[in-house]
Design a protein around this nucleic acid. Structure first.
Length: 406
RNA sequence: GCCUCCAUAGCUUAGCGGUAGAGUGAUCGGCUGUUAACCGAUUGGUCCCCGGUUCGAUCCCGGGUGGAGGCG
C-alpha cells in the first residue's frame, strides 16, 4: 500500500500502491473536478508523466451523475486516464456559498444550480466514490471558515471525526460488495490552533486509514501559520502513513511542505494560473499577457523541455491568451503542469541523494529572486513616479489658474 | 445641387439645461481539496468647431466641418 524507501531529514520518498499502479512520493496531482483537467485530456496528463490526478465525487454527482460514470465502467474509462485517480468527497465545498445549504450531524445539505437540495451523508459519499471506482477515496469532512471563533472549529472537528468513523465503517462494509481495492484516506481539521490541530490529527490517526490528509489549510493563513500547522500535524501522525496536504499547490509552498514530511499534494494552482496567463518558472511566476512579451521570440521558460516551450514562443502564447484562443489555455497548462511534474521529480531525486535541504534552499532562493519579477517591479515603480509627477503638475496648473481668476 | 440622419473615452455607445456613465480595449495585480477561459484595481473625455440664447450649453438655436443614406 505505502512504503517509505528513502528518508532525508523529515523528507522522504515512498511508494503508494493502488489498483492502477504505483505512485512515487512526494507527488502532485492536477485537479479534474469534473473528470477533466481543464483544457487537457486524460492522455495529455499521462503524456506529461503524471501518475495520478484527483477528481471530485460531489461535483460529479451533480453532473453528469454518479450513475452515468458507473454505467460506463468507472472514472478511469470515463475520462480515459489509466493511472491512479483520487476522488475528493465534497468536504471542501462546505466552504462554498453556492453549494452549502445546511450542515448537521447527519451530513451536509447541498443545493445544485436549480436550487434542488440533497443530503450528503458520509456513507453516501463513500458509496459514490466506490461507484465511481476511483483508486483513493476521501472521507467527508467539515471545514470551518478561516478566522472564525473557536466554537466553529470545535464543531467542525467533532463532526469531521464522527463522519470519519462512519465513513470507515461504511467503506469496510461496502468495499467487498463492490469488489474494490479502493483505499480510503481520513482528513484531520483544526485550523491553525495547535491544540485543535494536534487533537484532530491524533484522532484521525487512531482510526487507521490507508492514508491521512491535512485538511482545512491553505484557506487564508499566513505562510508561517501554515508551516507551523503542517509541522504539528506531521508530528502527530504515524510516520509510516502517507501524508496528503490537501489544496497546496504553489511551488515554493510544496518545496517547504516536503521538507516537513508531506508526501502528497493537489491543487488548481498551476492549471488556474496557466489559463489566466500566469507562467511558472524556476525564477518565479510571470504574466505572459504583459505587453513586454508581445514580440518575445523565446520560449516560456529558457531550457524547458515541455512541448509548448520546444515549439512555441512567448509571443505566440501572449497572442493566444490575449485573444482567448482555446489553444492558449492548453499550451499554457502543458507548461505549468510540466513544470510541476519536473519540480516533483527533482524533489524526489534530491531526497534520494540525501541533499534535500540544499535543494530546498537553492530552489527558494531562485524562485523568490526572479530576475523578471524584479525588473518589472522597478519598471512599474518608475511609471508610477512619472504619473504622480504629471498629476502634481496638472494640479498645480489648475490651482494657479483658479486662484488667478479669483 | 437639394433633403434626412449622425458626431460623447482608443473602439461600440448611454445620458441630461447644472461640465458625463457603461461595455470593450489598454496597464497592473490576484488566483493554492475549481460548477471560476475567472476576479480585482488603475487608466482613460476640450461631450467635432465657431457663434447665439441662458445665471449656466455636451444638451436648445444658427452657421461651419466631417460621415452615412435618399433624390436629382
Amino acid at each position: 500500500m505505502f512504503k517509505i524507501v528513502h528518508q532525508d531529514g523529515k523528507a522522504r520518498v515512498g511508494r503508494l500502491q493502488t489498483a492502477h499502479g504505483t505512485v512515487e512520493t512526494p507527488f502532485f496531482m492536477p485537479v479534474a473536478s469534473k473528470a477533466s483537467v481543464k483544457a487537457m485530456s486524460g492522455s495529455d496528463i499521462e503524456d506529461l508523466g503524471y501518475q495520478s490526478l484527483i477528481s471530485n465525487s460531489f461535483i460529479l454527482s451533480l453532473s453528469p451523475g454518479i450513475d452515468v460514470v458507473e454505467n460506463i465502467g468507472g472514472i478511469h474509462k470515463f475520462m480515459h486516464f489509466n493511472n491512479t485517480i483520487f476522488t475528493d468527497s465534497g468536504g471542501f465545498q462546505v466552504l462554498s456559498k453556492d453549494f452549502l445549504l445546511k450542515k448537521s450531524d447527519k451530513g451536509v445539505y447541498f443545493k445544485d444550480k436549480s436550487g434542488k437540495k440533497s443530503l450528503y451523508t458520509p456513507e453516501l459519499v463513500v458509496e459514490n466514490q466506490l461507484r465511481l471506482a476511483s483508486d483513493v477515496a476521501m472521507t467527508l469532512d467539515d471545514v470551518a471558515h478561516f478566522g472564525l471563533g473557536g466554537k466553529d472549529y470545535v464543531d467542525a472537528i467533532k463532526r469531521t471525526h464522527a463522519w470519519a468513523k462512519r465513513s470507515k465503517q461504511a467503506h469496510d462494509e461496502l468495499k467487498e460488495s463492490y469488489n474494490s481495492k479502493q483505499l480510503l484516506f481520513g482528513i484531520c481539521q483544526g485550523g491553525i490552533r495547535e491544540e485543535y490541530r494536534r487533537f484532530s490529527t491524533h484522532k484521525i490517526n487512531e482510526m487507521d486509514f490507508d492514508g491521512v490528509a491535512l485538511g482545512g489549510l491553505v484557506v487564508g493563513e499566513s505562510r508561517k501559520e501554515l508551516l507551523e500547522s503542517i509541522k504539528i500535524a506531521v508530528d502527530s501522525f504515524d510516520q509510516e502513513k502517507i501524508k496528503y496536504l490537501m489544496g497546496l499547490g504553489s511551488p515554493s509552498d510544496i518545496v517547504q511542505a516536503v521538507g516537513e514530511g508531506v508526501d502528497c499534494f493537489d491543487s488548481i494552482y498551476p492549471t488556474a494560473n496557466a489559463r489566466h496567463g500566469s507562467i511558472l518558472t524556476k525564477t518565479g511566476r510571470y504574466m505572459i499577457k504583459k505587453i513586454a512579451y508581445k514580440h518575445d521570440k523565446g520560449p516560456l521558460e529558457e531550457g524547458c523541455t515541455c512541448s509548448t516551450c520546444t515549439h512555441y514562443s512567448k509571443s505566440y502564447l501572449h497572442h493566444l491568451l490575449r485573444t482567448h484562443e482555446l489553444l492558449g489555455y492548453k499550451l499554457a497548462t502543458i507548461h505549468n503542469l510540466h513544470f510541476m511534474n519536473q519540480l516533483l521529480n527533482n524533489i524526489r531525486t534530491a531526497i534520494k541523494e540525501g541533499r534535500y535541504e540544499i535543494f530546498k534552499n537553492e530552489f527558494l532562493e531562485a524562485y523568490f529572486s526572479g530576475k523578471e519579477a524584479k525588473e518589472f517591479s522597478s519598471q512599474i515603480q518608475r511609471k508610477y513616479q512619472e504619473k504622480e509627477e504629471q498629476q502634481q503638475a496638472k494640479y498645480l496648473l489648475t490651482h494657479q489658474n483658479s486662484s488667478s481668476k479669483k
